[in-house]
Simulated assay, not measured.
Amino acid sequence: MSQEQRAKDPQAPDPSAWVDEHGDYLYRYALFRLRDSALAEDAVQETLLAALQAYANFAGRGSERTWLVGILKHKITDHFRRISREASVPQREDEAFVDENFFRTEGEWAGHWRAEQAPSDWHASPVALVEQGEFWLVFQNCLGPLPPRIASAFVMREVDGLTSEEICEVLSIKVNNLWVMLHRARLHLRHCLELNWFKRPTDAH
């Protein structure tokens, strides 16, 4: 946006400022979720375009970055919903099998670990971990070997905060299959993080 246009309407959105201030952050988030640089770039571009079109609805409520990330999350969710509908992915036997001993099956905590099966306490503050950029690099490397649908299900649940019903709708799966996918992801990540982060020398982090 030119300085002349900004002078005429100081409240008008400035996409160039969004790119400068939030572009790298949005791209890193999209890359973390999509694990493909081209898809991440497309998602960010679609996010900025949608933000420009919907700026009147923003009206300064909350931070601009939080608002943009919210739009980006919707774009990423739409991507997974679209590819789930376009491609019929056969279920593997280990994804279709449900061992109900691992998870609660009733009540508001359905789908969560049973107390006796839950991972052990790492004695680490989640807030402190989030603030450590190196931890997220290790986390992303640990997430990489997982099948894309399983990794996506885990991130939708634990990072994006989607409900089980929302994830099942996006990925076109049943809730029992989701529990198995989350279980596989948690076991893998637990082992990988314990090996590559929590059991490293304390002076390394």
Rank of each mutant, 00 (worst) to 15 (best):
E194K: 14
A151V: 00
T47I: 04
T163L: 12
T77E: 14
Y29M: 13
D78M: 10
D42F: 06
R82V: 02
E93K: 14
H188C: 05
G60Q: 06
Q45N: 09
R65Q: 12
A153Y: 00
R28T: 09
G62R: 10
A43R: 01
A87P: 00
H74V: 00
T105A: 15
W136M: 11
W18D: 09
E100H: 10
A87W: 11
I71M: 13
A40L: 06
L34W: 03
G161C: 12
V170L: 03
Q117W: 07
Q45V: 05
S16Y: 03
A38G: 07
Q5A: 15
S2D: 12
H112Q: 14
Q11D: 14
R104G: 07
E165V: 03
E131W: 01
V127I: 07
R61L: 12
L52K: 10
V69F: 13
V159T: 05
H74R: 10
L195A: 15
V69P: 02
D99K: 05
P126V: 01
A153Q: 06
W197P: 02
R200E: 08
R6W: 02
A115D: 15
D36N: 15
W113R: 06
Y27R: 05
W67V: 03
N141W: 00
A87Y: 11
L72R: 06
K8E: 13
A128K: 08
P90K: 15
V159G: 03
A12E: 09
R184D: 06
E86A: 13
P201E: 15
D78A: 13
H188Y: 04
K8A: 12
C142A: 13
H22E: 07
A87F: 14
I76R: 06
V89T: 09
G107A: 14
A51C: 11
P13F: 08
F32V: 03
T202E: 09
E158K: 11
Y25H: 13
L39H: 03
R33G: 06
R184W: 09
E64H: 11
L48G: 11
A185V: 04
A124Q: 04
W109P: 01
A50C: 08
L182S: 12
P15S: 01
S16Q: 12
F80C: 04
R28V: 04
L187R: 15
G161Y: 05
A54T: 02
S164P: 04
P15G: 05
F102Y: 13
E100N: 10
E46A: 15
L178F: 03
S125H: 00
Q53H: 11
H205Y: 11
E166P: 04
H123M: 09
W109C: 05
H205E: 03
S63P: 03
E158I: 05
P201C: 14
P148C: 07
L171G: 02
